[in-house]
Amino acid sequence: MTKRYVGSLLVGVLIGVVVGVFLGWEQYPVEYTNSPLSALAPYYQDEYTLMVAEGYQYDQDINAALERLQPLGKPNVFDYIQDLTERYISQSNVPAIPVMVALSEAVGRLTPIMEIYRMTPVPSPTPMVSQ
């Protein structure tokens, strides 16, 4: 009687643990809601970096751009910028390439593959006080 009871309990626990682990890791894993930028999925990290690169085009402040990239927690942010730029080039992500190349150039990571995507500087017109 006791043997049967204990045996049934053990079998039940075994089944329960398997089910519980499946639920806890696969079906209903822990969802974090107070995450840092460094925990973002790679896609969103790339998207964030692209936005920072576009922001650099707006304000031309490379220090501010690098500061904005710090929360991503990359060990070497210059390497990361270069890698992402070269990845966008290899993926022909046309809209993203020029701004990322400009950011790479600003941090001194303009590689030969990026050269042809550099934005051509536009000569500034002569200001006139009045017409």
Binding site: S8, L9, V11, G12, G16, V17, V19, G20, V21, L23
Partner: peptide, 16 residues
């Protein structure tokens, strides 16, 4: 015993 075991097991699995 079997049902009790399953309940205990699920609880333990989720806690882990």
């Amino acid at each position: 015993a079997l049902i009790l075991g399953v309940a205990i097991g699920i609880g333990a699995g989720l806690f882990y």
